[in-house]
Design a protein around this nucleic acid. Structure first.
Lengths: 193, 193
DNA sequence: TACAATTTTCAGAAATTTCTGAAAGTTAAG
DNA sequence: CTTAACTTTCAGAAATTTCTGAAAATTGTA
């Protein structure tokens, strides 16, 4: 499989960015290749195109499957496994988003919840507890928001993201429309310092 | 400086999560410690509390300053540099969010923009170009949305994140309020179910 | 200026992650 | 059942990242 210089650049870049997005270089490259290549690709082709070992490809494919980013296909009369990116670019973005939320937020929320159960022993600890509570509240809210976004359908998500400065206007509109009482959890707005 | 077992757990966890959030273990630990400890802390105290070398602390502080996550202070009559987390938890979250956007999105947008400039040579390349365009559009939109969120003040951000399922209702409301013509790109509002 | 306190730097050591490739495992076809 | 095609595994090698600590640089004071 020959890659155009354009495809080459795309693939190499996703390899480099890979670590920032949660996977290693070759996994990033494999994903990029499957993304720009619309035809299904098999493991040998990936190894050849990316100049990496067959074993590494096998491990990378396993990881991409764990991320639910690729799909297995079969070609009639060919025993090899073929892969494509799973779904549209939009689907992929959604999957990466959800997967990252799970990996970056959930474990921390679990720990903080646990830390908040033990009563502080002294003044110093009470102070720390307060900070932990603040971090927890923020991350919990973030997590819920991410969850809300995940549930929006493509049309609404698009609408929301395109709002730009219209967003704050819309939020204002909301206050007027529904009054001061928001949804559950939005109790009392304490006077700002 | 002695850490309570609670603080200890908090610090260790942020060390482990650090890599997922874009910095290494000790930098994560240092940040966590500065976050739960309200009093300014100097480099020697950090090295002692975290059991890491003085040199490592120096490098870590440099990195946290690059992230704009910590602030330098001085105590009268003491030549040492003291540090605290910069601003409220809320400020910190905002900073991390912006910094990550810069690191995770900007370089890719720049590359893709460049790739889209060259005309595809053959059918295969045209196909790839189309995919690159899709990825670009999505990331560009994400970037703009992130930018919009960054600009919201705390009150609006809080309101937005607490909306929950109210969000899609609000978006619907928006369609009705402003009619079919949304912002650029948000063409045709199909009849509601 | 000289000096002592403090921070930074950076070469090499240590730790961690990634990658290879040969061997083991699996599966479909004959 | 046997074989050949294919995939997975995993021990060790290679690459990369992180960390240490001693030396160099910087800074405030006298």
């Amino acid at each position: 499989m020959k890659l155009s210089s354009q495809a080459q650049a795309f693939v190499l870049h996703f390899g480099e960015m890979g670590s920032r997005w949660g996977f290693n270089r070759t996994v990033g490259q494999m994903f990029a290749l499957l993304t720009i290549h619309s035809e299904p690709v098999n493991a040998d082709q990936l190894a050849e195109a990316l100049k990496i070992s067959r074993g590494n490809v096998s491990m990378g494919l396993k990881e991409l499957q764990a991320w639910r980013l690729i799909e297995l296909h079969h070609q009639p009369g060919d025993r090899k496994d073929y892969f494509t990116a799973a779904g549209s670019i939009w689907d992929l973005a959604r999957t990466v988003f959800e997967e990252r939320r799970k990996r970056e937020l959930d474990p921390t929320l679990t720990l903080l919840r646990q830390l908040l159960l033990t009563e502080p022993g002294d003044e110093q600890e009470a102070e720390a507890q307060k900070k932990i509570q603040e971090v927890y509240s923020l991350l919990e809210m973030l997590d819920q928001f991410a969850n809300t976004l995940s549930k929006l359908d493509e049309k609404d998500l698009l609408k929301l993201m395109k709002l730009g400065s219209g967003l704050s206007k819309l939020l204002e509109l909301k206050s007027r429309a529904t009054g001061a009482a928001g949804k559950a959890g939005a109790k009392k707005a304490p006077a700002r310092k």
